[in-house]
Simulated scan of single mutants.
Amino acid sequence: MKYAVIRFPGSNCDWDMYYVLRDQLKVEPIFVDYRETNLPIDVVAVIVPGGFSYGDYLRSGAIARFAPIMEDIKKFAEAGNPVLGVCNGFQILTEAHLLPGGLRKNQHLEFICQQQDLFVQNNQTTFSNQFKPGEKVMMPVAHGDGNYYCDDVTLQQLRTHNQIVLTYSKNPNGSVADIAGIVNEQGNVMGMMPHPERASELVLGGTDGLRLFQSVVTRQLQK
C-alpha cells in the first residue's frame, strides 16, 4: 500500500511523515511533487503535511490550493479515499474547500509550539478508530494561523453530522468550539492542527499520534 506525501515549496514536515509511515507503520510512503497533475494509481491515501507552503504568502494555504496536484487530490477525495491534512495541510484543505471553515491567525497573534492535551470526540472515523470515545490524548501544536473559524450554521452542521473529531482541552488559539480537528461530511477527509507525526515515538514524548495513522492503515486493511 502506497501513501502519498504531498510536497509544496515550504513543506517542512514531509520527512517526518515519511519516517512514521515507513518505520512505524511499515507501509510504503512516496513523495508527490506539487507540480504533478496526477497521483500514482496505486496510492491508497494522501497526506498533506505541515510547513509554510509558499511562505504563507497572502494567507496560509491560499496559493497551494491552486497547485496542479490539487485537482487530482480533489478527485481522489471525491471517490471516497482518505486524505489527511496536518497543520498547513489543514489550511490547504480548507482553502481548497475539501473541508468547511478556515484557519485564522491565533487569537493572541503569537506563534505557539507546545504539547497539547486533546479530547477524542468521534472515534468512528477512518482517522480515529484506534482511540476510545472521550479519550484524552496528547499531541504537539506548532502554528501561527491555527484559529479554526466557521459560522454558526456550519458549526451546527459539524455537530449534527459528528464531524468534530478532536477538541482542545485548553484552547490555545481561539478556535471556535475548541476545535482541533474535523472531517468532511463523508468522513474520508480530515484536517487537524496538532501534529500526530511528532507524537509517534516515545523519544518524542508519546505515541498518541501513532494511533491516528494506525487507524488509517487498519481501515485500509479492512477493505
Rank of each mutant, 00 (worst) to 15 (best):
V5H: 01
V5P: 00
P9H: 13
S11Y: 10
D16Q: 08
M17W: 07
M17V: 14
Y19T: 05
Y19N: 07
L21V: 05
R22A: 08
R22Q: 03
L25K: 09
I30Y: 00
I30D: 06
V32A: 05
R35S: 05
T37I: 09
T37Y: 15
N38K: 15
V44T: 10
I47R: 02
V48C: 07
V48E: 04
G51A: 06
S53V: 08
S53R: 02
Y54A: 15
G55P: 01
R59A: 15
A62H: 13
I63D: 05
A64H: 03
A64R: 03
R65W: 01
P68F: 09
I73Q: 05
I73H: 01
K74T: 02
K75S: 08
A77D: 15
E78R: 14
A79L: 11
G80T: 13
G80V: 11
G80P: 07
N81P: 03
N81I: 15
V83L: 02
V86Y: 05
V86S: 06
V86I: 09
N88M: 05
I92Q: 07
I92C: 04
I92W: 01
T94W: 01
E95S: 11
H97Q: 12
G102R: 12
R104M: 13
Q107V: 11
Q107C: 04
L109C: 10
D117Q: 15
D117T: 14
V120D: 02
N122E: 09
N123Y: 06
Q124I: 04
Q124E: 15
F127N: 05
Q130S: 11
F131N: 15
E135Q: 03
V137D: 04
V137S: 09
M138P: 00
P140R: 14
P140N: 12
G144I: 10
C150G: 06
Q156C: 07
T160C: 03
T160A: 14
Q163L: 09
I164K: 12
V165N: 08
T167I: 12
T167P: 00
T167Q: 13
S169Q: 11
S169L: 10
G174L: 06
G174H: 06
V176K: 04
A177I: 08
G181L: 06
I182L: 12
V183Q: 01
V183R: 04
G187F: 14
G187R: 04
N188T: 02
M190K: 13
G191L: 04
M192P: 14
M193A: 02
P196F: 07
E201Y: 06
E201N: 11
L202E: 14
L204A: 05
G205E: 00
T207V: 13
D208R: 00
L210H: 11
R211F: 01
S215A: 12
V216Y: 00
T218A: 06
T218Y: 08
K223C: 01
